[in-house]
Design a protein around this nucleic acid. Structure first.
Lengths: 337, 337
DNA sequence: TACGGTTTCTACAACGTTGTAAGCAACGTT
DNA sequence: AACGTTGCTTACAACGTTGTAGAAACCGTA
């Protein structure tokens, strides 16, 4: 049986509001009254009804994190950091899995929001700035890259620079036939577009001509897509001597396909990824990658949201950039080593 | 600006309750009244306040899923299935990350629960049946194995049988020095205990003597722990020709350590895991494992919870067993192949 | 016209909490 | 002794919703 303030009040012989004051740490309560109330609370194992509190206060203490898929390691790792960072602000995180489709993301952005959560941290794939316009001022922080600057706060990394740098890293090994895996033509592929741009810039830096036949699309960025794309590159006769995969799961799939084709990594083909997921630190070979500071991303997102919630909701949207780190591992080890 | 029933009612020229009736699909509303109300709802972009509704109805439409860590692939995959299954029942899932410590799990079990959620699906590591006793009848389903039968519904797989079967599989390859990685002495290690028991039974089946020196503990079940345990087994001179790791992440770590030690898998050492996470299907070599039916686990958990919520809360706790599948892959490929 | 029955709608109260305003002691100051 | 001040406590209303009970309008039949 669940108890209410009223039950505690009766037991302690005080008013309901006094119990409320004790629960909320109000200062002016006589020590012995407080003790009596606390005793009653303990005896009845009283717990506040959050729905009622939320109704009264207009706040729920819950924020939502909407990600495309939970079992993509990057998002899972991100989610972990967000949960931790949110807890430091006293928030619980409601995790929503959108699947990445435009319609579902729209539902997530508007539907979930209904008075159940105080704010939203959103990692959209398909959503456009327009979709977000109808959100009635739900405080929101967007993660990841969007080409167009929407109406909400943003936490991003410099995808173009990172992709350019890692492409340069591959060129620095002496590779000339550097392939890319993960391009996408759909409007959802904002990350893909930026990373492709960085790849092209990296090639240009090294004086290598961009070759369409070395760029393989991937409908999604799962391991299976990476393996399929790699196989296709191998079969096409394009003979790459390095591959930059637009994320680590693609790269892990590519490693697998190379292995099955009897090609050695990095001797025959060097492989680089993007995201620095845990798997890449233990794969065979270990995976060179771009390591974004995920903890910082999560922390900043939560802080931006906190800022909106406590401060000015109408302030102009901010965009924060988080650093990344080029992290070479075995899959791009120089031949000399 | 957010609107209330009252605003819609004024605009449509009806009472608040009539609007409520329309929103809730009550039958006896004249078509043209309904139309007027719906128009007003659309114009104001009205959304019900869920806190108020919850307060009134005593239900929130949210269930919680508490897991030790989100970035352990097994839990992430499980979470994905739970979210999907819950959505089919109209529930949103609040995901809570306990960290696996006893105190945090206790907080998760009792604290989160406070009127914010209708029920809880809990995958505990450290919690005992006693800890769960004080939960005041919060409907709850436990996932994974517990030695003692607690007061709540359970969805489990037969750990002992599965571990025994995969140990037998290793023995069937002709291996005699079959090691185990992942044993735990702590009371939290219920899974470890059961899988160790199955391992011992599997050895006995094959007429192999149990050898303490071939059993390596792992404080947690991460890749790093698996790698460390494997290194220790190698260095100890125990010379295993097969390893059964108590989960896939341990096994992936072990693969890595074997690779670094210059040992071939499966030729020198066969490796088997448990859980069938996505990584194991793309690792080099691919990982033989026990594949529990995660989707079924999630679905059953949600259905058990639904049963509690809609039906008899006082019914005796049920325990459902979900099938698993021994899934041989490259890491235990027979020498002849 | 009157009547019972159905359909459609409304007023009111309640869910459990907290903000507001005000009440009552106890105290020190004039 | 009267007074303001401070500390502590309380009654009441309100947050936005829905269940209950019943009123009003409408229908067909006697």
């Amino acid at each position: 049986m669940r108890h209410r303030l009223k039950d505690v009040a009766e037991r302690a012989g005080v008013s309901v509001k006094t119990v409320s004051n004790v629960v909320n740490g109000y200062l002016h309560v006589k020590p012995d009254t407080r003790a009596r109330v606390e005793e009653a609370i303990a005896e009845l194992n009283y717990r506040p009804n959050l729905s009622a509190r939320n109704l009264r206060k207009g706040r729920t203490g819950v924020i939502a994190l909407a990600v495309p898929e939970l079992d993509i390691p990057y998002f899972a790792e991100l989610a972990r950091h967000v949960v931790v960072a949110a807890a430091e602000h006293g928030w619980t995180v409601l995790i929503d899995q959108t699947g990445g489709g435009p319609e579902q993301e729209r539902v997530a952005a508007s539907g979930i929001a209904d008075h159940m959560i105080d704010g939203l941290i959103f990692s959209p794939l398909a959503l456009t700035a327009d979709d977000l316009a109808g959100l009635d001022g739900m405080p929101m922080v967007l993660l990841g890259e969007r080409v167009d600057h929407g109406p909400a706060d943003h936490v991003v990394i410099d995808n173009v620079a990172a992709a350019r740098e890692i492409t340069g890293h591959l060129a620095g090994l002496g590779r000339r036939r550097i392939a890319a895996i993960g391009s996408q033509r759909t409007p959802e592929g904002a990350s893909a577009r930026l990373r492709l741009e960085g790849y092209a810039a990296g090639l240009a830096d090294a004086g290598i001509a961009y070759d369409d036949r070395l760029v393989a699309p991937a409908p999604a960025w799962h391991r299976a897509d990476g393996a399929a794309a790699m196989r296709q590159l191998i079969d096409s006769g394009a003979r790459p001597d390095a591959v930059f995969c637009f994320n680590d799961t693609l790269a892990l799939g590519a490693l697998r396909a190379l292995h099955e084709a009897g090609l050695r990594v990095p001797e025959d083909v060097a492989v680089a990824g993007f995201d620095d997921i845990e798997d890449g630190r233990f794969s065979i070979p270990t995976l060179s990658t771009i390591a974004p500071d995920k903890e910082r991303i999560a922390r900043l997102a939560v802080e931006l949201l906190a800022g909106r919630l406590n401060g000015d909701r109408a302030a102009p949207p901010r965009e924060l950039q988080v650093p990344y780190q080029l992290t070479p591992r075995e899959s791009t080890r120089p031949a000399t080593a």
